[in-house]
Design a protein around this nucleic acid. Structure first.
Length: 834
RNA sequence: GCGGACGUGGCGAAAUCGGUAGACGCAGCGGACUUAAAAUCCGCUUGCCCAACGGCAGUGCGGGUUCGAGUCCCGCCGUCCGCACCA
């Protein structure tokens, strides 16, 4: 008598059992091998979205599987709780960022629990809790003491109407999001972490990360951007000044036709003092925001200073010196030589200002000095029109120029990085206060550790733009810790990326009196498998790697890399809908191509990332209530490979729900207990599935594991009763347990097992059952399939060939002519070349 | 602008080492069961040609290497992601 699986009831019951038994609490001192499975912790925005569900389901399957294969598993959860949205909510709704955040955490925690994740909630943390950020302040001061923290001027987006700093996100089409005014760059004194000191280590360390996606390693490599080149000086005609430039293409030095400096280069600044025109041009360069995309896509502008730079290899050549808006003060020395023929940006600039374009690298048979066209040539070739370099290939010429510069003393070979130091100052309230006091007499002074945490004041207002900490009546006024004189607290807070740069360490070890215990951390780290969105491929992951190395540098931890394995999952997407009137419609407002409210037909748009603006989001809450946690989890794992986008669909979740019911019927089916005969087909399929699913889960190829389980279930459903069928059905409970744990527990208990399936061992594989004794062999003529044969595995080449030639279809296709050549791949195919 | 990826039926995909393209799921179509519906079960399902046997084409586009290419190489096109103050 097949009953229905009541997901609502079973979900709640088993979740309570896991909670009551503290089934998923990790024990630091367990003798089992340790496994640390971590998903990127969420920002508490208010509700769990499908992306979270997908991310945490993947980690959960792995965590549960690791437990079943004998590991002590750490699978924690927490909250990346500082950030701008809380302040925006405060401005819009008049709520306190802290209250808003904590309410969101409560909501989202309940939603996560509803999905039955095997999480160790005893280690839950929120970064906005002083118990967390106080330890972070201590770590910041350790870095400060070791010289890894410093202060310098750096540009921010400035809204001149609201008189406030804007995040890049708050700059829309070059304008402040509230005021609508054009944004400017403004310099502020800010705190920086010396990540560049670790540039080389961070680059070299990538090589050891075998379980990271190649694309992420490549992106980090390009981001760090190590390049070897020549740093050299141009003398200025008739002056004492010298301009130092860096070039990765010193070989093209005879092709230089201008020198360009950044707007905030000292030479530009010096000339601004004498010339209103220069000052005006520099002011123009300050327009616009600070993002690389904005700077590099804006029109390339230059201003001829009238200065002439003397070519170091030929004093007769004088190059004009421009101030240019595309040269960055942060990279190299803030000045470049322009070689238009072999760099696209330089070519655009030269054509615009009518500068010489001289070919110095041969492009095939094009060797003339006059360079036509608007496409720079950056490929390989021999040097031409370059004096002593003529005829050398590019790499040799680079070495020759560097050698000569070092010989003659006007330059030297150097390595520069694209990576810049990490600016961590934020002019905002809802973040970790930077534990520094500014004293007129003593300068910046670290807050003594026994005075930590420096906590955020609760009584703040968001009715006017700007940083509430800065205008708070009392908070920033303190005595200098060194001399006792009246002083001011730093009112900037830390970038939230600092919070997420060590949370995985605090998960592993959480003493009250210090950030972590070294020995305990080393039991768990590195994280075995880290899972999250690819949008974090560079910044978060690089900062966390840096922070780990910095702690090692301080002797606080003996770990090089925080994440041994990394997986970046795709987004959850959904169709978009528009009403007849052209407004976006949410999926709940649409049924069968009709807008429910108006009865009018709708337009179905592209499948896109779920977003509020397109209204194509699906709230997991009601879906879980309707279909149960297992169906939602199963859907998240099915069909799409985890690194690719997953299109959410109503029919898809229904299919997943039907599968959970099918499983239950199979488990509940009384005939599975009957019969004594063995069934070799089932035995073989079962063991292939055990091995295959294990392999797929380890590789995070959940979609493939799902397909294998479907195939096994399909076979069992159709099979007549037998001992093999009964055993396979019982074994199946453990195979699906990591993915659909609630129905698995229910069936496990109903079958009379003691204990939980969550604590059961992964079934053992009989290797003898993994191999097939017969194989299907394809017979091709000229690579085209003409017939297939079933032969015993391991049949000899000659016998395979004979069997192939004996086929009627083959004989007909060959039309009596013997093949010219026969290729036999044992156990695979025969290809006859006619 | 720079950097990274992806592209296979109506849809999500599979093909792990260059060896039978489309496993598995969704949708669709036909059938069984039912007074009816739901649920469930069975069958079909890349396109074109053929009564059938079967044949031809086919993995974004154009070339190439190979007995054999979704897979390797060269050149395009399209889509998506990141770019340092969103998290």
């Amino acid at each position: 008598m097949a009953s229905r699986f009541n997901a609502l009831k079973a979900d709640a019951a088993w979740q309570k059992v896991w909670d009551d038994n503290r089934t998923f609490a990790a024990r630091n001192d367990s003798s089992k091998p340790h496994a640390y499975v971590l998903e990127m912790f969420p920002y508490p925005s208010g509700h769990i979205h499908m992306g979270h569900v997908r991310n945490y389901t993947m980690g959960d399957v792995l965590a549960r599987f690791k437990r079943m294969t004998g590991h002590e598993v750490l699978h924690p959860m927490g909250w990346d709780a500082f950030g701008m949205p809380a302040e925006n909510a405060a401005m819009e709704k008049g709520v306190h960022p802290g209250g808003w955040t904590r309410a969101n955490i409560a909501t989202m925690k309940a939603q996560l629990k509803r999905l039955g994740f095997a999480l160790d909630w005893t280690r839950e943390l929120a970064t906005c809790d002083p118990d967390y950020y106080g330890h972070e302040q201590a770590l910041f001061l350790d870095l400060y003491a070791s010289g890894l923290v410093y202060r310098k001027e750096s540009a921010v987006n400035w809204d001149p109407v609201d008189m406030t700093v804007l995040a890049n996100e708050q700059v829309i089409d070059g304008r402040g999001w509230r005021s609508g005014t054009l944004v400017e760059k403004r310099k502020l004194n800010q705190w920086f972490l010396r990540i560049t000191q670790f540039a080389d280590e961070l680059l070299e360390g990538l090589k050891a990360l075998d379980h990271w996606p190649d694309k992420v390693k490549l992106m980090q490599e390009n981001w760090i951007g190590r390049s070897r080149g020549l740093t050299f000086g141009f003398e200025i005609a008739g002056g004492a000044e010298r301009i130092e430039v860096f070039s990765t293409r010193p070989d093209t030095i005879f092709g230089a036709s201008f020198v360009a400096v950044a707007a905030d280069h000292p030479i530009a600044q010096a000339h601004a003092a004498d010339s209103p025109e220069v000052a005006a041009f520099i002011a123009r360069c300050k327009q616009g925001g600070t993002t690389a995309a904005e700077i590099e896509t804006q029109e390339k502008l230059g201003f001829d200073t009238g200065l002439k730079a003397i070519h170091p290899l030929d004093p007769a050549i004088e190059l004009p010196v421009y101030i240019a808006n595309f040269v960055l003060m942060e990279y190299g020395s803030g000045a470049v030589m322009g070689v238009p023929a072999h760099d696209q940006r330089d070519l655009d600039f030269a054509r615009k200002y009518g500068l010489e374009v001289r070919r110095v690298v041969a492009d095939g048979d094009k060797t003339g000095a006059v360079f036509d066209g608007d496409e720079a040539y950056s490929g390989p070739g021999a040097l031409v029109n370059s004096g002593f370099l003529d005829g050398m290939p590019v790499e040799e010429a680079k070495r020759a120029v560097i050698a000569r510069a070092e010989d003659e003393g006007w330059g030297e070979g150097s390595t520069v990085y694209r990576l810049r130091d990490w600016g961590v100052s934020r002019q905002r309230y809802w973040g970790t206060p930077i534990p520094i006091v500014h004293c007129a007499a003593c300068g910046p002074v670290a807050v003594p550790k026994d005075q930590l945490p420096v906590t955020l004041p609760e009584d703040v207002s968001f009715d006017v733009p700007g940083n509430p900490l800065d205008r708070h009546p009392t908070w920033k006024h303190v005595a200098c810790p060194t001399c006792g004189a009246p002083a001011l607290r730093e009112t900037d807070t830390l970038d939230t990326f600092v919070d997420s740069s060590w949370y995985f360490i605090r998960f592993a070890s959480q003493p009250d009196d210090r950030p972590f215990d070294k020995a305990t951390v080393e039991k768990w780290l590195p994280v075995g498998q880290y899972i999250g969105g690819v949008e974090h491929a560079i910044l978060h992951l690089l900062y966390a790697r840096f922070w780990t190395r910095a702690l090692k540098h301080l002797g606080m931890i003996d770990v090089d890399e925080p994440f041994a394995g990394l997986f970046t999952q795709g987004m959850v997407t959904h169709e978009t809908y528009k009403s007849a009137a052209g407004a976006w419609l949410s999926p709940t407002e649409v049924e069968d191509g009709i807008e429910t409210a108006t009865g009018k037909p709708i337009t179905v748009g592209r499948v896109e990332k779920m977003s509020k603006s397109k209204k194509n989001t699906v709230d997991p809450g009601p879906i879980v209530d309707q279909y149960g946690a297992d169906a939602v989890r199963w859907f998240m794992l099915s069909d799409s490979p985890p690194e690719r986008d997953l299109p959410w669909s109503e029919s898809g979740i229904e299919g997943a729900w039907r599968f959970v019911q099918r499983l239950w019927r199979l488990f509940d089916d009384e005939k599975s207990g009957e019969g004594e005969a063995k069934d070799a087909t089932i035995d073989r399929k079962l063991h292939q599935t055990i091995a295959g699913v294990a392999e797929d889960i380890e590789a995070l190829s959940f979609n493939k594991a799902v397909a294998k389980l479907y195939a096994l279930v399909g076979l069992l459903e159709k099979a007549p009763p037998s001992a093999s069928r009964a055993e396979a059905t019982r074994t199946l409970m453990r195979l699906v347990a990591p993915m659909v744990p609630h129905v698995a527990e229910e069936a496990w208990a109903a079958a009379g097992h003691e204990g939980l399936v969550a604590d059961a061992a992964w079934p053992a594989v009989d290797p003898a059952l993994l191999v097939e004794d017969e194989v299907t062999i394809a017979i091709q003529i000229n690579g085209k399939l003409r017939d297939t044969l079933t032969l015993p595995k391991g049949t000899e080449r000659g016998d395979i060939e004979a069997a192939a030639l004996a086929s009627d279809k083959i004989a007909r296709a060959l039309d009596g002519k013997p093949p010219r050549k026969v290729i036999v791949v044992p156990d695979r195919l025969v290809n006859l070349v006619a």
